[in-house]
Write a protein that binds this DNA or RNA. Structure first.
Length: 360
RNA sequence: CCAGGGGUAGCCAAGUGGUUUAAGGCCGCAGUCUGUAAAACUGCCAUUCGUUGGUUCGAAUCCAACCCCCUGGA
C-alpha cells in the first residue's frame, strides 16, 4: 500500500507528519509547511480541547480551516499526555477503566474518557482519529504492562463503538468518514505486545499505531521490538509509528513496514539550534540507513560565524536557497524569532526529502 | 599638573577583613531532546581580584608607592 485515501483525498505513503500539537507547528505557519513540502500534521486532542476548545474549532469548520492547512490531519488521542502529565509528573491523577481524571496547575479537574477523546477528534475534524490508549510507562513491571494492555484494548473497544455511533449520527459514509486507528501498547514485552495487537485486530481498525516509549538508555529506538510489532499487523492495514524518530530510525522502520511517522525531533531540534543535513546525497534506502549519510550542524557554534555556505548543499529548502550558515548563526545569536522559523523549515524539508527518497 | 571616580575571567558584573580556594549573566566549549508542560535544560569555563610591598592569625576587601582608564579643571 503506497497511498491512502481519506475523505476523498489521497496521500502518498510513507508520510512524515510534524507535530502541530496546539494547531501549530511551533514557529511555522501553514505556508511555511507547504514550502517545506509537508503533507500533513498531527494535532493533539487533549491540548486542543483545552485551547481553543472544541466549540471554536467546530465554529471554524475544523482545525484544518482554523489553521488554514489543507494537508492530512491526524489527531493524537491524548494517551501520551496522560503518561506525560500523570505518570511522569507530580500532578495527581487517577486512571480507571472508565477514563482518566487529573488536574493541571490550578485548573479544575479534567475528566477524559475514550468516548470524550473521539468526540473531540470529530470536532477537530481530523482525517485519522486515534483511540485513547493507556500508555505503558518505560519502567513498568509485568503487572503494570498487563494492566495497560488490558485497558488499551478495553478503551479501543469503547472508542470503536462510540466512533460507529458518531458515524451513523452524522450520516458519514465510506468516503466521508475519518479513519480510526488503535495503538498497540506493551512496552518491551513481546508476549503482551502480541496480546495487545490481537485484541485490537479482533475489534478491527483502519490502522494500528506503535505506542509506548521504546527509546533505550542509549537514546536509540529499540529496532527489535519495532520490527516485532510491525510483523504483528497484517500488511492490509496502515502502520503508524507514533513518535518515530530520527532520520535513520525512520529509514529502518520504513523497511519494517511502518508507513506513517510523526516526531517532534526535527522541529524541537531546530529551535534548539541543531540542524539536520545529509553528509552526502542520499539516493537509496541503504544510503539512508547508513549513519554516515546523516549529520548535525550545531549552528550556534563559533565556526559558523563566517560560514557563507548553505546549511546543507543537498537541500532545496528556501532557507538553503537564500541564506547562509553565518546568517542563521547570527539570528540564533541575537535570539531573533526568525531563527526558529528558518531552522524549522529547513529541518522539516530534510525529513520530507528523506520521505521522498523512501517512496522511490 | 590638580581634584574626583575607577581598575575583579574574552565581555558585563556582585562582593568593602574570616560564611569567598570570588555570586550571577553573556560569550565560548561539551551534551540532552523521539505520539512537544521544551524558543528549554544539563555539565565545563579566574587557587584569583592593575602591580609591588605592608598591616593582620587571616585581605579582592585596610595602608603605601607605582602603573593604567574615565570625568572636570589648569
Amino acid at each position: 500500500m503506497d497511498e491512502i485515501t481519506i475523505k476523498g483525498k489521497s496521500y502518498k505513503l510513507p508520510i512524515y507528519l510534524p507535530d502541530a500539537t496546539r494547531a501549530v507547528v511551533k514557529s511555522a505557519d501553514s505556508l511555511d509547511l507547504q514550502s517545506a513540502k509537508v503533507e500533513g500534521v498531527v494535532v493533539n486532542t487533549y491540548h486542543l480541547m483545552t485551547n481553543p476548545g472544541v466549540s471554536i474549532l467546530k465554529e471554524f469548520g475544523g482545525v484544518k480551516k482554523f489553521m488554514n492547512f489543507e494537508g492530512l490531519v491526524t489527531s493524537d488521542s491524548g494517551g501520551w499526555q496522560i503518561f506525560s502529565l500523570i505518570h511522569r509528573s507530580k500532578n495527581v491523577g487517577a486512571i480507571t477503566d472508565k477514563g482518566v481524571s487529573f488536574s493541571l496547575g490550578a485548573k479544575k479537574k479534567t475528566i477524559f474518557t475514550p468516548e470524550k477523546s473521539i468526540d473531540v477528534q470529530f470536532g477537530i475534524g481530523s482525517d485519522i482519529v486515534i483511540c485513547l490508549d493507556d500508555f505503558t510507562p518505560p519502567d513498568a513491571g509485568e503487572d503494570k504492562i498487563r494492566e495497560s494492555v488490558g485497558r488499551t484494548i478495553l478503551w479501543a473497544k469503547k472508542s470503536k463503538e462510540h466512533y460507529l455511533k458518531l458515524i451513523e449520527r452524522s450520516e458519514m459514509d465510506e468516503c466521508s468518514r475519518p479513519l480510526l486507528f488503535a495503538v498497540i501498547q506493551g512496552g518491551l514485552d513481546k508476549g503482551l505486545r502480541k496480546q495487545c495487537a490481537e485484541g485490537l485486530l479482533e475489534i478491527g481498525f483502519d490502522g494500528y499505531g506503535f505506542g509506548g516509549y521504546v527509546v533505550g538508555d542509549n537514546g536509540e529506538l529499540d529496532l527489535d521490538i519495532s520490527e516485532y510489532i510491525a510483523k504483528l499487523i497484517p500488511d492490509k492495514f496502515i502502520k503508524f509509528a507514533l513518535g518515530v524518530g530520527t532520520p535513520i530510525e525512520i529509514a529502518h522502520c520504513f523497511e519494517m513496514g511502518w508507513q506513517i511517522f510523526d516526531c517532534t525531533l526535527p522541529t524541537r531540534d531546530g529551535r534548539h539550534k541543531r540542524l539536520y543535513a545529509f553528509a552526502r546525497e542520499p539516493k537509496t534506502l541503504e544510503d539512508l540507513k547508513n549513519p554516515d549519510t546523516h549529520k548535525y550542524l550545531h549552528i550556534n557554534r563559533e565556526m559558523y560565524r563566517r560560514d557563507n555556505k548553505p546549511i546543507s548543499e543537498y537541500c532545496d529548502c528556501k532557507v538553503c536557497q537564500n541564506f547562509s550558515r553565518a546568517y542563521l548563526h547570527h539570528l540564533f545569536n541575537i535570539g531573533d524569532t526568525l531563527a526558529y522559523r528558518l531552522a524549522t523549515i529547513h529541518n522539516l524539508r530534510t525529513y520530507t526529502k528523506l520521505i521522498g527518497i523512501l517512496r522511490n
